[in-house]
Simulated assay, not measured.
Amino acid sequence: MIRPMVNRDSAYFWEGTQKGELRVQSCNACGALRHPPGPACPECGGLDRGYVVAAGEGEVFSYVVHRHPPVPGKELPIVIALIDLDEGVRMVGEVHGVQPEEIEIGRRLRVDWHRVDDDLTLPVWRPVEEDS
């Protein structure tokens, strides 16, 4: 499996996934949220960063179904979506629990966790089941 790069800008995110928290970087100067994380706020240029814990729900803004080439450690096809989080930022993630023909723009998703090993937990997304 290809492991994500962890650096000083993203360490808080991966520490959160270990705890079952979906963390989004925030600017302590102006409050702007952003993902992916970075060293300086794109809104105000502030360097004082923090994070908020997102509710972990959003909807599909766009998606792809990856059918080829093979990806180490993954079974194809893989559904990958760009998710509009309810907090107002977008995040790319793998969608589990749907067939490629079932994914659609606007579909509600909720974060779930895939524990790879003691050092890595990945956020994955699953459909929000509608009440019957």
Results as ranks from 00 to 15, higher is better:
10 S>I: 09
105 I>H: 02
88 G>D: 05
100 P>C: 06
122 L>F: 03
92 V>Y: 00
41 C>A: 11
68 H>K: 15
5 M>C: 06
11 A>T: 12
76 L>P: 12
41 C>V: 14
101 E>N: 12
38 G>R: 13
8 R>N: 14
108 R>S: 05
64 V>K: 06
53 V>G: 02
120 L>E: 07
5 M>H: 11
110 R>P: 04
113 W>L: 00
65 V>Y: 05
15 E>W: 08
53 V>W: 06
58 G>F: 06
84 D>Y: 01
103 I>N: 03
13 F>V: 14
48 D>L: 10
17 T>K: 03
88 G>A: 08
123 P>C: 07
130 E>N: 11
46 G>K: 04
11 A>F: 09
14 W>H: 10
22 L>T: 07
79 V>W: 03
46 G>R: 06
8 R>G: 00
22 L>F: 08
64 V>Q: 12
5 M>S: 13
95 V>T: 02
82 L>T: 11
49 R>K: 13
115 R>F: 01
25 Q>V: 12
54 A>F: 09
57 E>N: 06
73 G>K: 03
84 D>Q: 12
47 L>Q: 10
71 V>Y: 05
1 M>I: 11
63 Y>P: 11
33 L>K: 00
35 H>C: 00
48 D>M: 01
84 D>M: 09
54 A>Y: 09
113 W>T: 03
36 P>Q: 02
131 D>T: 13
39 P>T: 12
74 K>A: 14
89 V>M: 02
72 P>Q: 05
67 R>A: 13
67 R>G: 12
107 R>S: 09
108 R>Y: 03
8 R>D: 15
12 Y>L: 13
5 M>Q: 14
16 G>Q: 07
99 Q>T: 12
101 E>H: 14
15 E>Y: 06
40 A>T: 15
113 W>C: 00
104 E>N: 08
45 G>K: 08
56 G>E: 04
3 R>I: 11
123 P>W: 02
87 E>P: 13
111 V>Q: 01
40 A>F: 15
54 A>L: 10
69 P>G: 10
116 V>C: 07
73 G>M: 08
131 D>W: 09
125 W>S: 00
40 A>E: 13
52 V>P: 04
68 H>D: 14
122 L>I: 07
129 E>K: 14
94 E>W: 00
8 R>E: 15
95 V>Q: 05
24 V>K: 06
84 D>E: 15
14 W>L: 09
100 P>L: 04
77 P>S: 03
130 E>Q: 14
82 L>S: 09
100 P>A: 08
105 I>Q: 04
66 H>C: 10
125 W>T: 05
71 V>R: 05
72 P>D: 10
78 I>G: 01
12 Y>H: 15
21 E>R: 01
8 R>I: 12
70 P>R: 12
22 L>V: 08
115 R>D: 02
61 F>T: 10
109 L>N: 04
67 R>I: 08
77 P>V: 10
15 E>N: 14
23 R>W: 12
34 R>M: 15
